[in-house]
Structure formats: C-alpha cells, structure tokens
Simulated scan of single mutants.
Amino acid sequence: MPLPKSRKIAVLGYRSVGKSSLTIQFVEGQFVDSYDPTIENTFTKSMTVNGQEYNLQLVDTAGQDEYSIFPESYTIDVNGYVLIYSVTSYKSFEVVRVIHEKLLDMVGNVQKPIILVGNKKDLHMERVISYEEGKALSESWNAAFLESSAKENQTAVEVFRRMILEVEKMEGGQPQEWSPCSMM
C-alpha cells in the first residue's frame, strides 16, 4: 500500500449553515445539536479512497459574511474548499457567492478544487433554495455539487470523499493515458 497522502481542506460558509455540524458528523459520527459559533477549529481524520490512504486536516472556519476579510491563512497549503450554504437561507446562498469571489481574488488563477454543498436538506418545509439553483451555481464555477443533512448523516462522508477525488483529479493524481514518445 502506498504511503498516506496529506490533504488540507477548508470548510467555508455563512454563520450557522452547518459547517461544524457536517465536519463533526464526518470526523466523529455524531450530530452536534447546540449552536456555538466557531472561531476556527482543525480536525484530523484518515480515510481510504480507491486504495489510497489520506490523512485529512479539516479547517472548520468561522462563519463569514459579505463584509468579512478573507484570511490569507485559508489559502496557505489548502488543497481544496468545501463551500457550504443552507438550503433554508437565501442570505447564506448570497454569501457563499461572495466567499467564492474572495477566494478567487486570493488564489488568483490557480485552480483549486471546490465542492458546493447545500446543507440542511432535511428541513423540507423551510427550503428556499432548490437543488437546481445550487447545481446551476456549482456548474457556473465548474465545481462539484452535493446536498447534505449533517443531522441525518446524509452524505457527510461523501462530501469529503468527493473532495479527495476532486483534489486528485486537479493535481493529476489520476492515472494518465500512456502515450508513446519518440526522440530524434
């Protein structure tokens, strides 16, 4: 088995969209019901994807708004970004667009894998952002898209598994087609 690869993933979004809940559900397998605003937490977890072990460092960031300064630390050695909004909040959907713009401003034209996640899909009656709206936004960014429910543990593992696949694809970690080369 090859040596484990280390990957750093930043989890960004508006306050109370479920960044910590989704991260803790993935790392510890439990749902945290109480809301305690996060300053910033870092979690570690190992997982195996396609026979390769990964040591993940997950940076669970403080909730951002459209006026927040985008910390430069969120771009240093980060391999990919999980941008989360709540399907029950237009404000969080607007803010995730602003965060994406700030992220692009910080990293320049460097392509970084991004997954857009519409969280709280278990709150059917309160939904204001459709699956189609989230999917359309992710496509405009050329990013992956998933909806999740941290509470019901729907897709928490899949979000981070998909992130690893996106990072590997972007870094050329996928097996490349062999092409003959001749020298003259």
Rank of each mutant, 00 (worst) to 15 (best):
V17A: 09
Q52V: 12
K102C: 01
S182K: 09
M106K: 15
P180A: 10
S73E: 15
G118N: 06
I164K: 07
I69T: 13
V59I: 14
P37Y: 06
E94L: 12
G80K: 12
V128M: 02
V17W: 08
I24K: 06
D65H: 06
G172N: 09
T75W: 12
E72Y: 15
D105T: 11
I9Y: 01
E166G: 14
S140T: 07
L165A: 13
V95C: 12
I39S: 12
N153W: 00
R7F: 05
T61Q: 06
H100C: 10
S182C: 09
Q25W: 01
Q154I: 15
S46K: 07
L137H: 00
N50F: 02
V27P: 03
E101H: 03
I9G: 02
K151N: 04
K121P: 00
M184Y: 04
V117W: 06
Q111Y: 13
H124M: 05
Q174M: 15
P71N: 12
M1A: 14
V87A: 08
V98S: 05
R161G: 03
T38W: 07
Y35F: 10
G29K: 08
E133R: 13
S130F: 06
E40Q: 14
T88H: 07
V157G: 04
V110H: 11
K169H: 08
K120R: 13
F26V: 05
E177N: 13
E28I: 04
L137D: 00
K135A: 05
Y67C: 07
Y67K: 10
L104D: 01
F145I: 06
V95G: 02
P175M: 14
Q174C: 11
V32G: 00
D60T: 10
A10T: 04
N79W: 03
A156K: 05
F70P: 12
P113V: 09
V157T: 14
V82S: 02
I129V: 14
L104N: 11
V27T: 08
F145L: 08
M1F: 11
E66A: 07
